[in-house]
Design a binder for these strands. Structure first.
Lengths: 146, 146
DNA sequence: CTCCCTGCAAACTGTTTGCAAGTAC
DNA sequence: GTACTTGCAAACAGTTTGCAGGGAG
């Protein structure tokens, strides 16, 4: 299904630019998030990281996740299973669909959402500066299987 | 601003109908959520509850919040400050705006969201069974003040 | 009278912090 | 060499669980 194509090198470059020192742990973590087909929590990322680097510290992963989130490279998703899972951020595509069967995330064109927000701003009189939309259901593939 | 008009009696009736025993603590908690102008966490609801009933147990509040959520009387919001705050559920109005200045919640007409979801279903091929949309910004009142 | 609800305390989970040693630059 | 990172262990916060006593139906 969705091809969350992320370029690890871009991420490393972004980290470097932000003044963060680029280390092996970081490169590993970035790779883990970039490659994962499903949203990962910090805890899960830690588990994966230890498979190749057993001595990786838990706190390191949590700190790294925080940095990646602050830099906007990963994005926290707010869903059924809690609010501690992250997906790589794809530029300008914020509308996220999560399949409740296979767990995979798909990024949808967010233009309709932008329109909706503009419309709501007009009607309500509020100034809307940020939004979170998550969609849940069965993805095209899982519908076939079921 | 928004008038989250909730009828406590309806809630108690819903509880009663669900087989839950109606007690003083429950009535108090329902009142707290119904009256609050801002989303409350279980912890915060506990704090409020103890003002009038100092011996109220923390666990009781957590259990009660869970029940109210399961019954659909309150709804967890997913926002900036975390994902552990709740607002009373207003029937059929799921689109929630949270003011980042005053913290208050406003319910917007969710029809546009329903349309958007239908549209996305068509385009993506996924079957969408649930959604979470949260909007953030400055409410009409806070814009005046600033 | 029965069973659910309550309060208390302890357990648990996910996350954060402090610190000495290590490492990028 | 300097300052940011790391791993470890301990601290922490929010939430859950077990249990004995109390109250609703």
């Amino acid at each position: 299904m969705p091809s969350n194509t992320i370029n690890s090198e871009d991420w490393l470059a972004a980290l470097y630019k932000s003044g963060v020192r680029v280390t092996a742990v970081q490169a590993a973590l970035i790779d883990i998030f970039a490659r994962s087909e499903v949203p990962l929590s910090a805890e899960q990322a830690w588990d994966v990281a230890r498979r190749s680097r057993p001595k990786t510290g838990r706190a390191t992963v949590y700190r790294m996740v925080e940095k990646l989130e602050n830099l906007g490279l990963i994005r926290r998703i707010h869903g059924y299973q809690g609010c501690s899972h992250f997906v790589p951020t794809l530029p300008e595509l914020m509308m996220l669909f999560i399949c409740l069967d296979c767990g995979r995330a798909d990024y949808l064109d967010s233009q309709p959402l932008d329109d909706l927000i503009q419309q709501s701003e007009h009607i309500s009189g509020h100034r809307i500066t940020d939004s979170r939309l998550q969609l849940f259901g069965a993805c095209a593939v899982c519908q076939q299987i079921a």
